[in-house]
């Protein structure tokens, strides 16, 4: 399964992802930060391949399963270590843990994004297409 990737140049800061996520889960797990009103960046769970949140979870409530971090609320003690470990601030903690579960495979934030700034993709596919586009630009310069 792919993960969520952002093309920051496409984001228009409309916060549709936030509103959609909140509608789906009751509490938004993605948040859009506007930088000096001159750019906007959605911050969200990257399902990191080494998953610092799962690495610090001592009860096994969060664990790495294939390419994704899965969560078992029954084992969670709300200790907050995962919240501390996440470098994106993508885990929120009140009476429960709020974290992205990719909506079971079809994330609403990706589906609702008006500008396709958020994509559900395999990272190799994204870097591959970027690479071939960059190579194409270079080749065009040489051949002209």
């Amino acid at each position: 399964m792919g993960k969520i990737y952002l093309d920051p140049e496409r984001c228009i800061g409309c916060r549709s992802c936030e509103v959609a996520c909140e509608r789906e889960h009751g509490h938004p797990r993605i948040s859009v930060d506007k930088v000096k009103d001159l750019a906007a960046v959605p911050v969200y769970c990257h399902q990191c391949d080494t998953a610092p949140c799962a690495a610090v979870c001592y009860t096994g409530s969060l664990r790495l399963d294939g390419d994704m971090v899965v969560f078992d609320p029954d084992l969670c003690t709300l200790c907050g270590l995962c919240f501390v470990a996440c470098p994106f601030g993508a885990i929120e903690l009140d009476s429960v843990i709020h974290r992205c579960d990719l909506c079971g495979g079809t994330p609403v934030c990706v589906m609702t994004c008006p500008t396709e700034a958020l994509q559900l993709e395999d990272i190799d596919a994204i870097t591959g297409s970027t690479r071939s586009r960059a190579a194409g630009v270079l080749a065009a310069r040489v051949r002209v």
């Binding site: 549709s16 959609a20 008006p114």
Partner: peptide
């Protein structure tokens, strides 16, 4: 027109 996408108002 929207290919599934919606703005925040549409979502609400």
């Amino acid at each position: 027109v929207n290919e599934g996408a919606l703005c925040p108002k549409g979502n609400a």
